[in-house]
Design a protein around this nucleic acid. Structure first.
Lengths: 342, 342
DNA sequence: CTGAAAGCGCTTACAG
DNA sequence: CTGAAAGCGCTTACAG
């Protein structure tokens, strides 16, 4: 009684376990009256199927693993919430693997945790996957969807980070700025395929196209993609006497917020003395008056789930959008950018 | 071959499935040489046990459910990361249920997802649990640890929120402030058992003890516990002509950051015109120069896991600290608070 | 539309 | 120390 099994339901409803199973799962034909009797019986004794038993025979766990390097940075948190909601809605569980850069923990997750038959599929968020990692999932025939980040294999979803970097830069160029600095993410130079690497490329391209290639190179500072990272990086950029930039393109909104504070600390007004643009559409952007290239991480997470469900053979109400097309972004101009001082 | 079973390992090692199982799990006696042969065989064919099969017979899933209302607020994100790391280290999976205030989603999580035999235990973070919810877990004999939040049943871990609120207020009183406002969390008044409800109580107690009871009541504003919430709330508090407070106790650091920006926007200097104190020890606190009552959410998450493992009968290396004792906090004074203007 | 039987891949008494 | 057998709780061909 403590843990009613399907046999108990069957007995109470006066049917076989097979029929009870069919009635409850909705697979296979069952007479309407029978189904009703089974449902009543199940409700009466509070029957809930054992996922382990079901999984053992069906091979499906109704569980999706999510590999994500951060939980506490806005973009990642939003994606995670979007994924969770969509998965829950579809009756799936979400198993969280919070692992970042390569290392022991990450190997353990891929080699042990994900290799077991515990998840039906994997969503990797902002992870630069190694060949070994994708191959491992491939071998186990686990569908893989990756959102942002680099690596071959699996379905890939991402905005056009290079275009976003170029657009942000062009916005500043368009306002007449030429001394434009870039607050880049750590490893942007050494890892050009990464999200922040691509945005840096976009910055350089736009600057080169406008004839400021040499200017650009000298004005890139890499820092942690957080508000304190942006603060520290911007202090470095703005405190240097002489060639102070008149505009900064920050690779993320969180860094841009830090840059705003750094400017204020140095007595510079934004945007009077310094224009600042970010990328993300962070929920604080409005409060900071930040011009940014919005993206929609919550929707991205939900889309990743749609793709996963599709790969798992679930019928979806809505058709999937064009695969391969970059995810939507939008330039939102606020008060942190203005025309270059004459 | 694609998915090697324990029978394959046994055959290759020339032993029975029972022996292979014992050798691999470490339960029961196996000759050293036999164990070695089995391990070699398992490694050779890349054998990984099916958790579903094991769980079906042992009744253990090696999986802990975490119920958490936010992922993207600093305290919650830190707790979640702490829990994840500790669980992973102990070989457990973490299933994430991102549900907040009561509602359909939350009922579904407790009635369906958590009721199944899919998790061995539950950690609830910052959730005010209803009796029905704790009873449901109790009935299924699922250990429950809750961190912050209210509700009977299960092991409870939390800082002394009332004391934290009182201490923050006393710090300001000690500096000579009397017109002290409180930026409270939403629902602090209507839900006095909640985290922000307790901190509000502490504020009122300290103010009353100092003879400023009537002053206090008039200076409480409730807002969302985020930076924009703090910004909006503080604008309201500070923009009102006449009786402007000289100090603000914000229920969380994130709100305090918003209050700092609001003050600046209104042309007030911090701490010259306004002292501000928060609670949390947010990673941005140093950058903002914020005086705060630190707590240690990462360590809290790890501790919650220790308690859960203990309840699950796992032997722990370190003994558990006093149960019942509040979790540690520490007043860290920075540049956002100073003596009251004369 | 329904039931009897087999089987998913493990672990665990029970013998020896 | 090791093995044969039973069984965890489901689902799914296979019959009827």
């Amino acid at each position: 009684m403590l843990m009613a099994a399907i046999g108990d339901v069957a007995r109470l409803a006066g049917v076989s376990k097979a029929t009870a199973s069919r009635a409850l799962s909705g697979r296979g034909h069952v007479a309407e009256s029978t189904r009703h009797r089974v449902e009543v019986a199940a409700a009466e004794i509070g029957y809930i199927a054992s996922p382990a038993a079901a999984s053992l025979v069906t091979g499906r766990t109704m569980n999706v693993g999510v590999v994500i390097p951060f939980v506490n940075r806005w973009f990642f948190g939003e994606v995670l919430e979007g994924i969770e909601r969509a998965l829950l809605g579809a009756g799936y569980d979400l198993t969280l693997y919070n692992v970042g850069s390569a290392g022991q923990d990450r190997d353990r997750v891929f080699d042990f945790f994900l290799a077991r038959k515990r998840v039906d599929a994997v969503i990797a968020v902002g992870v630069d996957l190694t060949e070994r990692e994708t191959a491992s999932l491939d071998r186990r025939e686990k569908p893989l969807v990756s959102l942002g980040g680099s690596g071959a294999g699996g379905a890939r979803l991402s905005i056009d980070d290079r275009a976003a970097g170029a657009l942000a830069t062009e916005h500043l160029l368009h306002l007449g700025h030429t001394r434009i600095a870039h607050l880049a993410g750590e490893g942007a130079l050494s890892n050009p395929e990464s999200v922040h690497g691509c945005r840096r490329e976009g910055f350089l391209e736009a600057m080169a196209a406008a004839g400021h290639a040499s200017e650009a190179d000298a004005h890139i500072v890499e820092a942690e993609m957080t508000m304190p990272g942006g603060y520290t990086g911007a202090l470095q950029l703005l405190g240097h006497p002489g060639r102070r930039p008149s505009a900064v393109f920050a690779v993320s909104d969180e860094m841009a917020f830090g840059a705003i504070r750094a400017a204020e600390r140095l007595g510079l007004t934004v945007p009077g003395d310094l224009s600042i643009i970010g990328v993300d559409g962070h929920e604080y952007a409005e409060m900071f008056g930040l011009t940014t290239i919005e993206q929609y991480p919550g929707a991205q997470g939900r889309l990743a789930v749609d793709v996963v469900l599709h790969l798992l053979g679930e019928d979806l109400a809505d058709p999937l959008p064009d695969s391969g097309a970059p995810l939507p972004t939008r330039l939102v101009v606020r008060s942190s950018t203005t025309a270059a001082p004459r």
